[in-house]
Simulated assay, not measured.
Amino acid sequence: MAANFVFTEILFINIFICVLPIYFADKPESVLSNGNSFEEVEMAAKQLFSQDFEVFGKVQGVFFRKHTEKQAKQFGLRGWCMNTSQGTVRGQMEGELNKINEMKYWLQTKGSPNSRIDKAVFSEMKEIPDYTFKAFTIKR
């Protein structure tokens, strides 16, 4: 009985991995459920965007910039962040849309362990043709 189940499971996996990609590969009309083609989704993932941010709350003296730099690098983002004289942290990030959105969520809800985020404000997102920065850095 167990051997039958394993055989069925392996057969299903082989069909899913081997046959379905071949079936859909030659169909130019292959679209995702949202109506976009696979090529359109792949192109959108490679588009670059830029967005400014400012975070309010207890974000100075709590290693907020260091954690922001680390998180941005983990997401593959480029840009900068810095303390302001008003007690906030400002910055700019560049990268793929989904990674910028993940970083926005992090800036709004997580921050450094000892920080307190009251609010995060973001500029309008702009599409950019190429990166402006080589990495994500802390400005002093």
Rank of each mutant, 00 (worst) to 15 (best):
K119M: 15
G61S: 08
F7M: 09
K119V: 06
D26W: 06
S85A: 10
G61Q: 13
K70V: 04
W106P: 03
M82K: 14
A25P: 01
L107F: 04
Q108T: 05
K104S: 07
G111N: 06
T109H: 13
L107H: 01
K27Y: 10
A25S: 14
I117T: 09
R78M: 05
V31M: 12
K139V: 15
L32S: 03
S33G: 02
E127M: 09
C81H: 01
G76P: 05
F38M: 14
F5W: 03
V55H: 05
K58N: 09
Q60S: 07
F38A: 12
E96Y: 05
K110N: 07
N98S: 13
I100R: 03
V121G: 02
N101I: 09
A120I: 00
R116P: 00
G57W: 00
G91M: 08
Q51M: 05
V62E: 02
F56K: 10
D26C: 12
Q74E: 10
E124R: 06
M103H: 03
I17Q: 13
Y131A: 03
K139F: 09
A45W: 03
V31Q: 12
A3W: 03
T88V: 00
L32R: 04
T84E: 06
T109W: 10
I13G: 02
G76W: 02
L32A: 11
A120Y: 05
G79T: 01
F75H: 06
L11E: 15
V41L: 12
W106V: 06
I15D: 08
F5I: 15
F7D: 15
R65E: 04
Q108M: 10
Q60R: 06
M82V: 03
K134A: 11
K104G: 05
N36E: 07
N114H: 15
I10E: 14
G35T: 05
V41D: 01
E54F: 00
V62F: 00
E124H: 10
V31D: 04
D52R: 15
Q71L: 02
Y131P: 02
Q71E: 13
V19I: 15
K66F: 15
Q51I: 11
I128Q: 11
M125Q: 15
V55A: 03
F16K: 15
A2H: 13
F75Q: 06
M82S: 10
W106A: 00
K139P: 04
F24V: 14
R140T: 10
F122Y: 12
R140N: 14
T88D: 03
L11W: 10
N36C: 13
K46H: 11
I22H: 14
Q86S: 15
F63S: 13
V55S: 00
A135L: 01
F136P: 02
S123G: 07
K126C: 07
W80S: 08
T132G: 02
K27H: 12
P28E: 14
D118Y: 04
I13Q: 11
G57L: 05
M1E: 15
